[in-house]
């Protein structure tokens, strides 16, 4: 399959040259469609010091459908759903905004950028987004609490 070839290539590339603060592994060695990413919280953000586990699930139709990114570690963030799925859907990850030439490296870079700078306009958690916009101090406190509670 042409798609698989591309995934293999991307995986090799990402292993050789992984984006800052990210480690990528395959939970099951023969399953190229499910990646596990360990991402360090950006040092200049409230998530500094935390280690977050992410699951990147590639659809069969990849690269013509976007990968599915979800946080396995709980995180207090307006763009990550506050449930057991921890799903994240914004910008280029949306089905009709996805561009086939996009690579997973870019996706991970985007995720990291969103950790550093949340996008409350695009939030999946309106409550957290409101707090982020209006009571920044409370948000920072909550986020840090969650980091020490779940992401250490």
């Amino acid at each position: 399959m042409a798609g698989n070839k591309r995934i293999m290539k991307e995986f090799a590339d990402i292993q050789a040259n992984s984006p800052p603060g990210c480690t990528i592994t395959l939970p099951k060695e023969d399953d190229l469609l499910n990646w596990e990413v360990t991402m360090d919280g950006p040092s200049d953000s409230v998530y500094a010091g935390g280690r977050f586990k992410l699951a990147v699930a590639l659809p069969k139709e990849y690269p013509f459908k976007p990968p599915n990114v979800s946080f396995k570690t709980k995180i207090y963030h307006p763009n990550v759903s506050n449930d057991e799925r921890g799903s994240m859907c914004l910008g280029m990850l949306r089905a009709d905004e996805w561009k086939p030439p996009n690579k997973i490296v870019e996706v991970l870079k985007l995720v990291r950028a969103v950790l550093a700078a949340p996008q409350p306009e695009d939030a999946v958690e309106p409550g957290i987004a409101n707090e982020y916009k209006n009571e920044r101090r409370a948000f920072d406190k909550n986020a840090k609490e969650w980091v020490s509670k779940y992401a250490k």
């Binding site: 013509f64 459908k65 089905a95 009709d96 905004e97 996805w98 561009k99 086939p100 030439p101």
Partner: peptide, 9 residues
């Protein structure tokens, strides 16, 4: 970026 490359464009 918005009207050509996206898969749904």
């Amino acid at each position: 970026d918005h009207s050509i490359m996206p898969i749904g464009a």
